[in-house]
C-alpha cells in the first residue's frame, strides 16, 4: 500500500501538469480515454519535474530527500528496524514532505497553464498543426480556422456574430434552421453534441423540392 501511494506521488506532477494545460473550457481533449495510457504518458514529465525540483531542494534548502528511506518504502524492506526507522522519519518530517509535494503540484499546474497560454497567445496552435487542440469546432466557430496556413481563405480577424444555416432531419422531413449561433457543446469524443441558436428562422425544405424551385436544387 505504501509503495502504491509513493508511485502515485511520483506520477502526480505529470498528471497535474496536463490538467493545468487542458484547464480552459475550449481545450476539451480526447485523451486515449483509458486511464492506463494517461498514467503512462504522465511518467516522463513527472520524472523530469521531480529531477529539476530535487536539484533545487537539495541545493537551495536545508532539507535533503532521504533516498534510502524512499527505497525502504518502495521496495518494502523486510527488516523491521529499517521500516520503523523509515516511518518515524516520515512522521518527523511530515510537514516538510507535504509542503514539498504541494509546492511541486502547484508548480506543475502552473507550468501546464503557462504552456497553454504560450501556445494560444503565440498562435502556435494556429500555425503548427502539432500544437492544435482537439476541439476542432472551436477553431471552426471562432473563425480561427481561417488563419490556418493550409486553409485557402482570407483570414477573419473580427466576428460579431456567427449565422448558421442547418439542414435538420425530422420526422416531418428536412427543415432548414437559420439563426445566430450562441453556444455549442461537445460530447466526450470532442464531437458536437448540440448547438444553441437564437433568432431562429425555420423553413421546411420539402416545398421547394416538390416543385416550387424550378431549378430542382
Amino acid at each position: 500500500a505504501v509503495a502504491s501511494i509513493l508511485i502515485v506521488l511520483i506520477i502526480a506532477p505529470g498528471l497535474i501538469m496536463s490538467r493545468g494545460f487542458f484547464s480552459a473550457p475550449f481545450t476539451k481533449r480526447i485523451l486515449p480515454s483509458n486511464p492506463v495510457n494517461e498514467l503512462i504518458s504522465a511518467i516522463l514529465p513527472s520524472v523530469v519535474l521531480h529531477a529539476l525540483y530535487l536539484v533545487i531542494v537539495q541545493n537551495w534548502t536545508d532539507y535533503q530527500v532521504d533516498f534510502p528511506l524512499l527505497g525502504n518504502l518502495l521496495f518494502s524492506s523486510s527488516n523491521p528496524d529499517r521500516i520503523k526507522e523509515s516511518f518515524s522519519n516520515l512522521s518527523t518530517f511530515f510537514v516538510p514532505i507535504a509542503i514539498y509535494h504541494i509546492v511541486l503540484w502547484a508548480v506543475a499546474y502552473l507550468l501546464g497553464l503557462i504552456g497553454r497560454v504560450i501556445i494560444r497567445f503565440g498562435s502556435l496552435d494556429i500555425n503548427l498543426a502539432y500544437f492544435r487542440f482537439n476541439n476542432k469546432w472551436h477553431y471552426i466557430f471562432s473563425g480561427e480556422i481561417t488563419r490556418f496556413p493550409d486553409v485557402q481563405r482570407p483570414p477573419i480577424t473580427r466576428i460579431d456574430m456567427r449565422v448558421v444555416d442547418m439542414l435538420v432531419d425530422t420526422a416531418d422531413g428536412s427543415i432548414i434552421y437559420s439563426g445566430i449561433l450562441q453556444d455549442y457543446s461537445l460530447n466526450n469524443n470532442a464531437e458536437l453534441d448540440s448547438l444553441t441558436l437564437s433568432h431562429v428562422f425555420r423553413r421546411p425544405l420539402t416545398e421547394e423540392v416538390n416543385g416550387k424551385n424550378d431549378a430542382g436544387e
Binding site: V163, M166, D169, G179, L192, L195
Partner: peptide, 24 residues
C-alpha cells in the same frame, strides 16, 4: 416562419449539414 425570442437547442445528431457565416 420565425421563432422569436427563444434559444433553440438542436441536437447535432439530427443535423445533416451546417452552413456557417462569419458576420462582422
Amino acid at each position: 416562419y420565425k421563432v422569436p425570442g427563444a434559444l433553440m437547442v438542436i441536437p447535432y445528431s439530427k443535423v445533416v449539414n451546417i452552413n456557417l457565416h462569419y458576420a462582422a
